[in-house]
Nucleic acid binder design. Sequence first.
RNA 1: GGCGGUGUAGCCAAGUGGUAAGGCGACGGUCUGCAAAACCGUUAUACCCCGGUUCGAAUCCGGGCACCGCCUCCA
Length: 450
Amino acid sequence: MQKNLILYNSLSNKKEEFKPIKDGKVGIYVCGPTVYSSSHMGHARSAIVFDVIVRFLRIVGYEVTYVKNFTDIDDKIINKASELGVDSKDISEKFKQEYIEDMRNLGCIDPDFQPCVSDNIDGIIDLISRIISNGFAYESNGDVYFQIDKFKDYGKLSNQSTDSMLTNHRIEFNPNKNNDLDFALWKKAKDDEPGWESPWGKGRPGWHIECSVMSCNHLGKNFDIHGGGRDLIFPHHENEIAQSESINDGCFANYWLHNGLININQEKMSKSIGNIINIRDALDKWNFNLIRIFFLSHHYRTPVDLSEEKLLEVEKSVRKIVKKINTQGNNSGDKGFRDLWKEAMLDDFNTAKAFGIFFKYINEGLINQSNIKEIEEFEFVMGIKGWREIFINQKENINEEMISEIVIKRNNARKDKNWKLADELRSQAESLGFILIDNKDSTTWEPIDQ
RNA sequence: GGCGGUGUAGCCAAGUGGUAAGGCGACGGUCUGCAAAACCGUUAUACCCCGGUUCGAAUCCGGGCACCGCCUCCA
């Protein structure tokens, strides 16, 4: 069946056939977090999406190098540190470790490389120097700016013309800049700020430059896929392109993939609204498999509305499907499943369609324990693990003696056809948090779903 | 204002030229003393609106409308 991989390239705004630079190999760079606070569900979605993309690329035979950076030097980190009166390194280190843990708890495979800005200062200084000597940047009062009017392709990713950008009133006037749209490659450090010595004095890298350096370090100056959230298209990715291509003869990443953002109860998730959901809080409440299935039931490019209700829906449908897989017999397996879901994935990583196919095949009894290998392959790509056992072993913390007492009493009442008492005992059980199930010749019980 | 995206059943969501996947919910039935679960069945002549192309369009083209995002830090 092996069809070609098609993906939507933000650079052309079209679906394109994927052609790797080197046969059988894929280099992918995904923008990681700025580590100044706990990571949230937006990070989770992006991480899960690219995790599945990498897993899928591997399973169809590509040798993938997956790089995700940490931006551990940034104004927000510095501000947070000074607010708390601690070293900015303490902040970045703490949240970096948290992020790594969160990602693992979400079932994401570690990227092959997770470089930090602070380990790449020399490379950054070197790159900036080369951009300056190529005539695309200038030093001004200890800052270094990229001169966007020197780069004729500026705006090609976000489809913005520089003229229209200049009419934007939100750009702040900065006397050090030649042009309001120029952006910082290097920022002069104030006395109390962390900084590194450079040809332009003590300072720190601007945002954007680190990704140009670190992607090139691990993947080369021209690599296959660059990913990140939609919100990074401008200015971050636009500026990365400008920096990198200004010294690399117009070559950088070939395909740009952007995942959609999330809303919470129909509202944008943002600090000002105060509706940010941290990954840790979500994981306290929901099994990571449910979170993954929720996100993967949507196409990665569309915005997603996250709510308690939606997660509950996922839980219900998963509960049913799990029961089916675990109880259904050994029907003859249907080999169509593997080809169908992979075909869906080959078309711009359509996980939503793949899950639709998965549910359908299970519901129709076409895959079950006898096709466990096929199920496991699907599970591996989607990164869902142990989800078939989520709903087992929930019987702890329940007083079994009390329950069997109620069951015995009720069964006696039923024998006497005392339905009123039997019903009372049933509601008594329910108020204690479990439900009685009358089978042919026995009564069992289960905890009531929360 | 510029750029991009989205608009498919009560809700969520696939579907980019061949006659509407899947999930949740709802309804009817089987089973049950009653339930629960399970199973069977029903649930969009129809894809924001108006034109056009085509034998044929949710899918392509033109024109509207609505919502959202980005354009300042953001996954």
